[in-house]
Write a protein that binds this DNA or RNA. Structure first.
Lengths: 139, 139
DNA sequence: CAGGATCCACCAGGATACTG
DNA sequence: CAGTATCCTGGTGGATCCTG
C-alpha cells in the first residue's frame, strides 16, 4: 500500500516524512490566523472589513496574506463587487468547509479546555519551583 | 459584555478576542510540531528517540521545547526511568488524547486533500500569470 | 540516550504610509 | 472600503557543541 505516486491517483502522503509536501501544507494550515479566519468564515461569507472585526487584533497584512494563501489553496473564494466603494466577499469553498469543521473543533477545544490547561500550568510551575528549592538546599 | 472570569465556572472565553487567554493557547497548540508530536503519541507512549525518529526532521531543540510545553499544559506526561542509559517515555494524558483526536483528523486532512489543494494552486498560478500578461498588454 | 546551552540566520508579523 | 508597499524588530527554529 505504500506506493509513491508523483502523478495523479491517491499517493502515500505522510506528513511524518520531512520531505513530503503534505508536511508543508500542514505547516501552512496550522496556525492561529488560518484557524480563526476559516472558522469565522464557517458561518457564511464575510466582507474583508467584517472579517477584520471578527478576528480582533489581526493586522491587515496578516489578514490579506492569509486570505491570499487560502484562496490559492482553493479553500476560500474571493468575490469582488465593483461598486463604490468596492466590496469584496470571502467565502469558504467545499474544500474549505471541510477544513473549517476541523478547525472549528480546534478553536472550541482551546476555549473549552483552557481552564484545565491553565491549572495544569499552575501545578507544573509549582512543582518546578519546589525542585529548584530542593536543588538549592542540596547544593 | 465580555466579562472576564478569572476564578472558576465556565467563562466566556472567546479566541476571537485578542485579549482572551485562549487566543494564546490556540496559538500555542496550533503549529506543525505540536500536531505531529501529539498525533504520534496518539498510538501510545513513545520514547524520546522514537519520537524524534517518527517525526522525521524535527530538531532536538524543537522536540524538547515542544514536549516541555505540552507537559506543562498537562497534555503529556514525562516518565523517567533511571536506568543506564536513561530512558524517558512520553504519553498523552486524557486531556492530550482529546486534542490528539482533533489533530489526528487535521493531519489526515492535509494528507487526504493535498492533491486537491495542489491542483487549486496550479489553477490560481495559471490565472495570475494570465492576468499579468493582460496587464502588460494593456499597459 | 536524553537532553541543556549557545550562536545566529531568517522571517513572521506589527506599525506606518499610500492608493484606486 | 480593500487593499499594496516598505521598514523594522522580536522571536522561531536550525546547527553545533557539551553533559550525566
Amino acid at each position: 500500500m505504500a506506493e509513491q505516486r508523483p502523478q495523479g491517483g491517491t499517493a502515500c502522503y505522510d506528513a511524518y516524512l520531512a520531505s513530503c509536501p503534505t508536511r508543508k501544507l500542514l505547516d501552512e494550515i496550522a496556525g492561529k490566523w488560518v484557524s480563526l479566519i476559516v472558522v469565522a468564515l464557517g458561518d457564511g461569507p464575510l466582507r474583508y472589513s467584517d472579517l477584520s472585526r471578527q478576528v480582533a487584533g489581526v493586522s491587515q497584512k496578516m489578514l490579506t496574506q492569509t486570505l491570499r494563501v487560502l484562496e490559492r489553496d482553493g479553500l476560500v473564494t474571493r468575490t469582488v463587487t465593483p461598486s463604490v466603494p468596492a466590496r469584496v466577499d470571502y467565502e469558504l469553498t467545499t474544500l474549505g468547509t471541510g477544513l473549517g469543521g476541523l478547525l472549528d473543533g480546534f478553536k472550541a477545544w482551546a476555549e473549552h479546555n483552557f481552564e484545565a490547561v491553565d491549572s495544569a500550568r499552575g501545578r507544573y510551575d509549582a512543582r518546578s519551583a519546589d525542585l529548584t528549592i530542593e536543588a538549592n538546599a542540596a547544593g
